[in-house]
Amino acid sequence: MLKEILKNIIRRKSVVPFPQGFRVSPEEASKVTDLQEKIDAVFGRSLRIRQVDAGSCNACEWECTALTNPVYDIQRFGIDFVASPRHADAVLVTGPVSRQMELALKKTYLATPEPRLVIACGDCAVDGGVYKGSYAVTEGVANVVPVDCYIPGCPPSPMAIISGIIQLLEKLTHLR
């Protein structure tokens, strides 16, 4: 461990090469670079997201978690997932909203200070996905709380989630 830290201090100035074999296309990368400016414009440097699992299969969550790994490292743009809705600008909801999570989702939404945004992440959150028609789900987040942005995909890849957030920010920059 100490060795690791030392190594990092000594080598600090060298550029860390992107791990071999990783794939992020130039178009995707260029989309991300102006993300910072947009966040600066709309939120004054930070966008804080509270993630709520409303009955997801958990793949959508793992893609959100992947956003914080060293490859996507979404925190460098000022975006982060926070522990409490009270600290959040946006609520990102995954899953078709199972009946037994409806109340908890509403409460989390209401606990988020206004103005608040709601992002429906994943096919399930959009319209129920594969679970559409089941007795125990509400078929989409919009049936429970108002939605500002939809990110389709099953699950949407980390890059798709980032571009979804960019689109939302774009919408907001135009409004200003």
């Binding site: 037994q100 679970y131 089941s134």
Partner: peptide, 15 residues
Amino acid sequence: LFYTHKGTEKHFEKI
């Protein structure tokens, strides 16, 4: 638990 109960087994019968 069972907050994420989605009626999966019944849904299998339906689809």
